[in-house]
């Protein structure tokens, strides 16, 4: 089977005021892939992600979603294109005036005329997918950070998007919760086959599950490849980024253990 490219980022440039954030970023993501974008904080990873979903318009370059330019599309085309992409925001971005149920039902109500019974069924199904049941009546403010992210994922899944974007899903979570969310991202991909792009600076998340990884630095993609290739990289900056303060060999053995178990904590 030929692997189909769903996201194509071509030569993207963006600056805010005098600060140039993206200086010619290009890469593509294949269908069903679990693709990580890593890099230091403040390197423009989230900005890049927001370009893919069309929230930010680039100064130059384009983003093709299944061959269609998301920044050029207007009217109904733009809406259709945006429905193919779900996004999980860093802090969930749940509507805090609505219950969990209303949050997940929101995109369904907006785009389909479903009966209340059908909506309830879909909401239940999506909540089961993220392993949260029976919290439909709660308000987002009553949930913990991890639960809020799960609900956000359930909401992003409500429209059955072909592409899911995660903005720093594990930043600010404790190691156990990080592991939980990482597993959830992988499980979601495995269950639904959704193309997943994850922005992260957590190297262990990448090692565990990534199919491919891109390293963003100095406004460019400095490295792109599988996690195995990443470990063999010659790029000094990336090497430092991976190893942090660990010895190279120690890193390799940790890598192997982590990779084979699909877990870094057990």
């Amino acid at each position: 089977m030929v692997e189909e490219t769903v996201i194509q980022v071509i030569n993207l440039y963006k600056s805010f005021g005098k600060q140039q954030v993206l200086k010619g970023v290009s890469f593509s993501v294949k269908k069903g892939e679990l693709f990580y974008i890593i890099g230091k904080s403040g390197e423009g990873k989230s900005v890049l992600l927001k370009h893919i979903v069309g929230l930010i318009t680039p100064d130059k370059g384009k983003v093709l979603i299944e061959g269609m330019d998301i920044h050029q599309a207007t009217g109904v085309d733009a809406l259709k294109l945006r429905r193919k992409i779900g996004m999980v925001f860093q802090y969930g971005a749940l509507f805090d005036s609505m219950t969990v149920y209303e949050n997940i039902a929101f995109p369904l109500r907006e785009h389909f005329s479903l009966s209340e019974k059908e909506i309830a069924e879909i909401v239940k199904e999506k909540l089961a997918l993220v392993e949260l049941e029976g919290i439909e009546r709660k308000m987002p403010s009553e949930l913990s950070g991890g639960m809020r992210k799960r609900v956000a994922l359930a909401r992003a899944l409500a429209l059955n998007p072909g592409i899911l974007l995660y903005d720093e899903p594990t930043t600010g979570l404790d190691p156990l919760l990080t592991e939980e969310i990482d597993n959830l991202i992988k499980d979601t991909r495995d269950k639904t086959g959704v193309t997943s792009v994850v922005v992260s600076h957590d190297i262990w998340s990448v090692i565990k599950f990534a199919d491919r990884v891109a390293y963003l630095a100095n406004g460019r993609i400095e490295f792109i490849g599988t996690p195995e290739e990443m470990l063999e990289t010659d790029n000094q900056m990336l090497k430092r980024f991976i190893c942090a303060r660990l010895e190279d060999k120690l890193m390799t053995s940790l890598f192997n253990a982590c990779r084979s178990r699909g877990s870094c904590t057990s």
Partner: peptide, 25 residues
């Protein structure tokens, strides 16, 4: 204050990504 909070907590961006125009809604 309500719209401002929705803006800074990315709720408006989230609405946009769900293909609902925030101005319309």
């Amino acid at each position: 204050a309500e719209l401002g909070t929705m803006r800074v907590t990315e709720q408006i961006d989230a609405m946009y990504t769900m293909a609902v125009d925030p101005i319309h809604y």
